[in-house]
Simulated assay, not measured.
Amino acid sequence: MSGSPWKVLPAGVHQATLEEVKAVYAASRYRRQLFEGLVVGVKQLSVAGCQRVYVDGSFVTSKPRPGDFDACWDPSGVQERLLDPIFKDFSNGRAAQKAAFKGEFFPSSLIEGGCGQAFVDFFQVDRFSGDAKGILLIDLSTDPTLGRSAV
């Protein structure tokens, strides 16, 4: 991607486990802190019935010190009564999410205001070049870190 300042994932949705994400993207102390915040959020979403989380942002690039991670979660099957309200709090630039998780979580079907695309699609466009890029998919129903496995 010639317009990107950092190496990004090839276009498409790439399935990974949390352990694989940790092995590839949590290589420094700072990146491990971001990863730990991601795991906290993913676990909370899993408790509410979320099955899929997509990870994007500078965290899944070669940027030496990413600002944070961006994630979106599939609302299918999520039980609203079990969903922490923080996942729908977008006030103050998503300050509560950033404080709790060191990153941001959006419903995957939520429309990003600037481009009119659902976040899951918006995340697949490089913001510097406009080219297609990849995102990670974590299947929460089978991820070994969450202590569940497919039956």
Rank of each mutant, 00 (worst) to 15 (best):
K43R: 15
R94Q: 14
S4N: 07
Q51D: 06
N92V: 04
V55Y: 11
D131I: 00
E104P: 05
L18K: 03
G77L: 07
D131Y: 04
P75C: 03
I138Y: 01
G12E: 05
S129C: 03
T145E: 14
K22I: 01
Y54M: 08
D121N: 15
F69M: 09
D121L: 13
P5D: 07
N92Y: 07
K22L: 12
H14G: 13
V8F: 01
S62A: 14
T61K: 05
H14S: 12
G57R: 06
E80M: 11
V39T: 04
G67T: 10
S46K: 12
T142A: 15
P75H: 06
L140M: 11
I86E: 00
Q117I: 01
S58Q: 10
L140H: 00
A26G: 12
N92Q: 14
A48R: 02
S28A: 11
D126P: 04
A118W: 00
K22M: 10
G134F: 05
L34G: 08
C72P: 02
G130C: 08
D143N: 06
N92C: 05
C115G: 07
G37R: 08
F106H: 15
Q97M: 15
G37N: 09
T142N: 07
L38H: 10
A100E: 08
I111W: 02
K7R: 14
V24D: 10
R127P: 09
A26V: 10
G57S: 08
V8G: 02
G12R: 07
F128L: 03
F119S: 03
A71S: 15
E20G: 12
A11C: 04
I135H: 02
C72Q: 04
R32V: 09
